[in-house]
Design a protein around this nucleic acid. Structure first.
Lengths: 203, 203
DNA sequence: GTCTATAGGCCGATAGAC
DNA sequence: GTCTATCGGCCTATAGAC
């Protein structure tokens, strides 16, 4: 959107990086693989991104911005708890998140960025829970909103992680349990809103 | 314990690998780093382990066996729910687990192994929850044991993960919430039993 | 079981022409 | 912005002597 030719290549590099991370993991990302996947010379990667760290950071910011936009749209929907739950249990988003968290474990510049994003996300989720509980006249003392947010999110992530591994022990029961209460609070689920426009990847 | 000289080197290699994985992540593990950390020649790593994959697998099995032994000991204690909760929230174990899960995401031989271990762990945890609930006369229909197991575990893992990143939004509230109910069921917490003998690393 | 030597490969990053 | 050429480094793994 800023500069035409330049940002086209830049976007192609980010797209290729994202794809490799999804398919083979962050450790498999290299400037040469990115280039061959995007039909470029590997040195172009170094021209557009001073270092691989800078590339990872730029990709995380792009992905995180998408996810946050998706969340704010869910918050504005008629059944925000259902919408947020569907996002949490949708496997495509957390997939890349896991790679970034693994990558960040030993890289401070990414750790700080992910931590800030996690806090922002948690606050938004908890605020929605609080609002919905208040509308239903449920006391936040017995079920603190941020606790419910973490319980929901933790279960969703664990199920996502284990599903990727290939096990499903207790998953169906847990999903049924949670969705039973979501149904009691917000009524039956409605289909997830379509992905916001202007996005390249359904992340 | 089997053969003296040989298994000593083997153990040293596994120890060094574990240390590097903890400190720098699985992607930083190489036969040369292992060797220099253990004071060996890098070719010895290839003698004792046909490939790096075989080494990772052997290390996972060693770590998993330790963790499962620790769990079975917790199950036999007087307050098993507290003991299992303390294991879940102890950051040192999950730390390595996260590395293995990230490593396994794109390696089938490890994925299957981790999936089997996860199922075994979940079944054990859920069985304990069921037993304790039955003793207290609580209906398993309203709170299915495997669901409680996943909610507890999911929250613990999310908190561990976010703590490693450096954020703590809602953590204290969630821990207080869960421990409040643990206290209602099993009474106040008792100190975690000491680590079982014969172990090299407090994992 | 442990050593030396080495094959063969992928990596990040830079210099300099166009 | 994109190209060619290239440096220096680390990697897995094997062959063969002891």
């Amino acid at each position: 959107m800023k500069e035409d030719r330049s940002s086209l290549t830049r976007t192609a590099i980010l797209d290729a990086t994202e794809q490799i991370m999804r398919e083979e993991g962050y450790a498999a990302v290299s400037s040469r693989k990115i280039a061959s996947s995007a039909g470029l010379k590997s040195q172009l990667v170094h021209y557009h991104f001073r270092s691989m760290d800078e590339l990872f950071l730029a990709l995380f910011q792009r992905v995180e911005e998408q996810q946050f936009r998706r969340m704010t749209q869910a918050v504005a929907s008629q059944k925000p708890l259902w919408a947020l739950w569907k996002i949490s249990t949708d496997a495509t988003g957390p997939w890349l998140n896991k790679e970034f968290i693994a990558l960040a474990t030993h890289r401070e510049y990414l750790r700080n960025e992910i931590a800030r994003a996690a806090e922002r996300t948690r606050q938004l989720h908890a605020a929605v829970v609080a609002r919905v509980l208040a509308q239903r006249g449920l006391a936040p003392q017995a079920w603190p909103p941020v606790v419910l947010s973490i319980l929901l999110d933790g279960a969703a992530r664990l199920i996502n992680s284990e599903t990727a591994l290939g096990t499903q022990e207790g998953h169906a029961e847990t999903i049924a349990f949670i969705e039973h209460y979501l149904g009691q609070i917000e009524g039956p689920a409605t289909p997830l809103a379509p992905y916001p426009p202007g996005e390249t990847t359904p992340d």
